[in-house]
Design a protein around this nucleic acid. Structure first.
Lengths: 330, 330
DNA sequence: CTGTTAGCGCTTTCAT
DNA sequence: ATGAAAGCGCTAACAG
């Protein structure tokens, strides 16, 4: 493997001149540059990025760490991040947090391989993030709180979103509303449930225990909990699913039992994932500004990188009700 | 930022001993190791990955380069890659090829930052890949041919898949079948069209020019070409869309005009993206083994990395017909 | 415009 | 079991 030394030798210049020429710097005679470039080509020279990084102590790279690269959230988020990263001339790499303690993310968080990192991953331990956080290494945490002076937080107003969802259902005339919960341990789930309750309380609505069921944040989870709901006999007139994936599983379960949405039961989801537009009926849901989240996150990283310090460390984004066809007026 | 030197000093050992202790090597007295680890903790020491890579000349990292991280293809592919990468104790990072010549992928291809790379990206220039390819740096190209001794190729049998699709349509009794083409420049598109033609020829079926329309491989492309098809008056009894996204756009266009699928027109797609299960009607399509593709790609990388040389440089994967509800018997 | 020089932080022989 | 020393490949003063 040819190094810059070999190139310099073949072009009969010093290593530094070779470096300058190779990196497109102006301060070289065109003739010399050409000679160096030709030598590089002849030797099939490839710069060693690690060596350059080591020397320059910045990598011009950002990392995005997510739990699941194939998740419905990821694709829209990344667009937001990517658009601004690219516009700043930075590279973006993404990796998944699955694989536990000593896997990929560790190296990016702990080994100074990127200039900053954006995290949307709950499997990553607090401890590790805390350990990585330090002056001059911006970390933006999405949908996750951490008590550290060195991290920046972006969250979505889950409570308000859930409140709006239920409020909408009530405005449509629904009075018996069930909550199908996601993972009980999830903060998102808690906030959404709080919003649900707040709206119910405000309108003096009861919610029998049997209509408060919990599953996991997946299509399957939604499917099974809905089956249970159906088996219990009497259905509520509307159901609030803690996320779209669950709602989609729910639609499936209803359809199998010949129960019509929204004629027999109205349902509303949360997230507004791409799929929710395509289900039958199209899913009414609470839109999360995923793109904005990504782009804000990247912006904040760059602001931090340019030395700005933040009085504000928590940014809250608003949700939006998206009316489609899964809720009816009663 | 504390370096290993600082740690060594604080622990009153030499740098080499510190390195050994820090990397969990056996040859240190437990007492010494503890002292080093404590010093590291106190100084909040973080290893500089670039320096380590520079020295070790392997990164234990693979890169996956795709055109679009948010594309429907990506998520299934990555699972396949990730599963085997993880099992080998390697890291996987992904990046998008958008951004042109001197963007992220360049650095991974050309700057020795990873031990190997898997590419599913058509925006990356041949020239660049060729330039990167060399002994000892395995590159696996998906759905793309290149004339280089140093690259390994995996492709899906697009022609056979398309042939099967059309054959199925014909077996259902369809005789007038249109082909809605993707980007004319795409090899995939060519192969699929060849398969289409082969089947048509075999059964002595004509295809009027007006039923051979081309768009782009997107939902929008499918939508617009379908609109055009409709405007031309007489419809074929079945349509083969060059991919699922286009077919989904087509369904949309038909639905807007009150034309029923599959009652009025049967449609079939290609790819079997996740979404195709959820459209109304659910889309009949040709399944591409995306997961298998990813996992095979990763396997081949590791085999190459372990010094194996390949007589075979082209692997062809078979497709599979997935019958859902968008085609009817005539 | 070009060459000399001094490391970046780490790993790794080779002695001890 | 530990330390001294060399050097991975590159960049960036600085001097000429």
């Amino acid at each position: 493997m040819a190094t810059i030394k070999d190139v310099a030798k073949l072009a009969s210049v010093s290593v530094s001149t070779a470096s300058i020429a190779l990196n497109g710097n102006k301060n070289v005679k065109t003739e010399t540059r050409v000679r160096v470039l030709e030598a590089a080509k002849k030797l099939n020279y490839r710069k060693n990025g690690s060596a350059a990084d080591l020397k320059k102590s910045q990598t011009k790279t950002l990392a995005l760490i997510v739990d699941d690269l194939s998740g419905p959230f990821f694709s829209e988020l990344i667009k937001g991040v990517q658009d601004v990263t690219l516009s700043k001339g930075y590279d973006l790499i993404t990796c998944s947090a699955i694989g536990g303690e000593n896997s990929t993310p560790t190296r990016f968080l702990l080994e100074k391989r990127t200039d900053g990192v954006i995290i949307l991953a709950h499997t990553l331990k607090n401890e590790m993030i805390l350990h990585a956080s330090m002056e001059g290494f911006p970390i933006v945490l999405l949908d996750r709180q951490l008590d550290s002076r060195h991290t920046i937080h972006i969250q979505v107003d889950n409570e308000q979103g859930a409140y709006n969802a239920v409020h909408y259902l009530i405005s449509l005339g629904h009075r018996s509303i069930a909550y199908v919960s996601g993972n009980a341990t999830s903060t998102d789930n808690h906030c959404r449930y709080r919003g649900f309750q707040k709206a119910m309380d405000e309108f003096g609505l009861e919610q029998p225990d049997k209509w408060n069921i919990s599953g996991s944040f997946t299509e399957e989870g939604g499917y099974h909990t809905t089956k249970m709901l159906i088996m219990q006999g009497q259905l509520p007139s509307a159901i609030f699913y803690a996320n779209d994936e669950m709602a989609i599983g729910g639609i499936q379960a209803f359809s199998e039992k010949g129960i019509k949405v929204p004629e027999d039961v109205s349902i509303i989801g949360f997230d507004d994932i791409l799929l929710s537009r395509y289900t039958t009926p199209a899913l009414t849901t609470i839109h999360q500004p995923k793109y904005e989240m990504g782009s804000l996150a990247a912006h904040l990283i760059f602001r931090a990188l340019s030395g700005e310090s933040f009085e504000q460390q928590l940014y809250t984004l608003e949700t939006r009700l998206v009316k489609r066809s899964s809720c009816r007026q009663v």
